[in-house]
């Protein structure tokens, strides 16, 4: 019962929603891409080095 309630909520919302949800998701996406691809902190740069090169991000 509880389960069906929690599952039903997103459905009613998804029929017509969520500019806020869409935007928030995109903001998270930008944050992740920035951290993996662009941030210049040394530790991040070193760990993500090969992925940056392989995915066409300017690296060094």
């Amino acid at each position: 019962m509880i389960k069906s309630n929690t599952l039903a909520a997103p459905v009613t919302a998804s029929s017509k929603t969520g500019l806020a949800a869409l935007l928030l998701s995109a903001v998270f996406g930008f944050g992740v891409i920035f951290a993996v691809g662009l941030a210049q902190a040394d530790a991040l740069h070193d760990a993500a080095h090969d992925v940056r090169h392989a995915n066409g991000f300017p690296c060094h």
Binding site: A21, L22, L23, S25, A26, F28, G29, F30, G31, V32, I33, A35, V36, G37, A47, A48, D50, V51, A54, N55
Partner: peptide
């Protein structure tokens, strides 16, 4: 170590792409 990090960061990067792509698709 190095290649494991690449796998993790590749999965993270594509998740970041998806977090932008899917809202656009849904819109």
């Amino acid at each position: 170590m190095r290649d494991g990090l690449s796998v993790v960061f590749s999965m993270l990067l594509y998740s970041g792409y998806a977090l932008i792509l899917l809202p656009l698709m849904s819109f």
